[in-house]
């Protein structure tokens, strides 16, 4: 079987097979053997490198969160496999977090320089500045002051 992951912006494929409770996986040139001791989603117990490990997982459309004694890890699937968020088009600036637009510092048509403060977002008492990534002109402002934005919402468009 094959499962693809997104690791640091790259897509990595894992080849794996299962024989009863034994799972063998090859990922990034490494081989890994895991024995399933208990599989009762969201909880599991496995034997790995001679240790019994108890953990939990949570599956969503874009990712799986895994809890191990070592820590908590979000494993993402490649963007294409997620079935479809359109990639932000060139010049677009998107919101790095869900929140509210508290201030818009520019107007459509205004010339801006790289590093200029364009917008201020706020979420959970925290502010985040949206700065211009380039010299250019504000082509479009998609959200006004007081409006809520989701993560990855496109906020403004900067063009030549």
């Amino acid at each position: 079987m094959k499962t693809e992951f997104q690791i640091g912006g790259e897509t990595a494929a894992a080849e794996w097979s299962r024989d009863g409770d034994l799972v063998t996986m090859r990922l990034l040139e490494r081989e890994l053997k895991v024995e399933i001791l208990r599989w009762e989603p969201p909880f599991f117990s496995v034997r790995h490198c001679g240790h019994r490990i108890h953990g939990a997982f949570y599956r969503n459309a874009d990712f799986v969160d895994v809890h191990l004694p070592k820590g908590n890890f979000r494993i993402r699937f490649p963007k294409a496999a997620r079935g479809g968020k359109a990639a932000a088009h060139a010049g677009g600036l998107s919101s790095p977090m869900p929140g509210k637009v508290v201030k818009v510092f520019v107007k459509a048509g205004e010339a801006v320089k790289k590093g200029d403060l364009l917008m201020m977002l706020e979420a959970m008492k925290m502010e985040h500045k949206i700065l211009s990534p380039q010299d250019g002109k504000v082509k479009k402002i998609l959200f006004q002051e007081g409006e809520r934005v989701g993560q990855d919402s496109e906020l403004l468009e900067i063009g030549e």
Binding site: T3, F5, A14, L32, V34, W39, V64, F73
Partner: peptide
Amino acid sequence: PDLAYAIVALAGKGGAGPAAGA
């Protein structure tokens, strides 16, 4: 850690049988 990827592979469809995936 590698183990996390193995768990995700198992959690996917066809991984650990009919009960797979939370």
